[in-house]
Design a protein around this nucleic acid. Structure first.
Lengths: 221, 221
DNA sequence: TAAATAAACGGAGGCGCCTCCGTTTTAGTG
DNA sequence: CACTAAAACGGAGGCGCCTCCGTTTATTTA
């Protein structure tokens, strides 16, 4: 804001528009046989756009220029807009993709580690994930508040993944049996709204460790 | 969206930006001796801008071009931005001004009419006021949710005005004595979230009448 | 394989946003 | 009044948003 010769900081986020619509999803992966297969080149471009957008949002915030994203993806701006009629559509798809990744990670961790370790690693990853989202909080909160489907979908997926990890760990006797997954979720939720101090990351890490200690205390194993 | 030769529908609303700030108010009326008197021309321009903006927002929605507003007010775009660094600042000032008008109307009505009539007229005016706001709902809701000061200030002013009318009417025996102003406020609040049917206006009018009947029933007078 | 058709592409162009800075106006002061 | 410093003005210019439509490409059909 100060010395900024000829600079142009967007700090923009567009709202309004139809927003009435449902999720712009349901056609991302070609696996889904229903609902219009995209032409090969279209699918390729769409995937590339989402890929690039995810990187760009993470690196520069949700306000990066869409023309930039199109350029980096090697497509014209028109192509971007055909696939994602508004900035919010693009943000939403990226967001869903990331939630998906988080949930898949839960399965992989559960396969590759003892149940309690899997839970701990996943929670650490959850913290990482939240960390990238904190910068975008305003826009994301707006998006989540105008699109309740998005909210319920994603929070359902995430808490489901966590529940499975918690229950597996409890069943294996790695953590105490009397914990409710939703309590753990809730405890973790605190980090989302925690103040934005520079040591936020460390503190969240400690919170996870603390939580795990509490969970392990009194375990059968 | 359909036939729209060369048309450009903004449908824009900008968010983000500092938003950290407090109200951009506290200097509107020259009466306030504190906090920097504006130079005469500056005050004139500022007033004109607010005036024009209020009309423009009401007529065309919050997404009217700011350059248009500046032009209609007969000032340069730079002047507009000096007074109102973001679109939201301008919207907020206009909004506060309208709330102010609504509350002043309460006093005038109380002076010029029997207490129960004053209350009824004011409620009708409240409905009118809400009516103009329904179109802007999305942006306004966003603004109110990001700026809690604005929300508490204005809702406090409005419910205060209503409380005074209700209590005056009750004291004068024009309506039953056992009503709580906040109940009436609450009942009226329902119209805000009522569905957007074309007969919304009429229905809201009927609601007010109904409410008044209920209030008058069992009055001393 | 070639032709036909539907689907997708992509960028020019029009518009609004916002900043920067040279010019103008106001409000003191002698 | 004339002068001056500070305050305010205002618009050019740079940038991003988004639409429109002529061109290109994938897929289907013969």
């Amino acid at each position: 804001m100060g010395a900024d010769p000829n600079g142009f900081k967007p700090h923009i986020a567009r709202v309004e528009k139809k927003l009435t619509g449902q999720s712009p999803e349901t056609a991302e992966k070609p696996e889904t046989p229903a609902l219009k297969r995209l032409r090969a080149d279209a699918q390729r471009n769409r995937d590339k756009l989402v890929e690039v957008a995810a990187q760009a949002f993470a690196a520069d915030g949700v306000d990066v220029s869409l023309e930039d994203i199109a350029k980096r993806a090697g497509v014209g701006i028109g192509t971007l807009y055909r696939h994602f009629p508004t900035r919010e559509h693009l943000v939403e798809v990226v967001y869903r993709r990331e939630v998906e990744g988080l949930c898949q990670a839960a399965e992989e961790l559960a396969r590759d580690h003892p149940a309690d370790v899997a839970l701990e690693l996943w929670m650490q990853r959850f913290v990482d994930y939240i960390a990238t989202k904190r910068g975008l909080a305003t826009s994301l909160r707006l998006l989540l508040s105008t699109n309740s489907t998005l909210f319920s979908d994603t929070s359902g997926r995430v808490s489901g993944a966590m529940r499975r990890l918690v229950e597996a760990a409890a069943a294996a006797g790695k953590i105490r049996a009397d914990v409710d997954a939703s309590d753990v979720m809730h405890a973790l939720g605190g980090i989302y709204s925690a103040p934005n101090t520079p040591d936020w990351r460390e503190r969240s890490g400690r919170l996870v460790k603390l939580l795990m200690d509490g969970l392990r205390f009194g375990a059968r194993g």
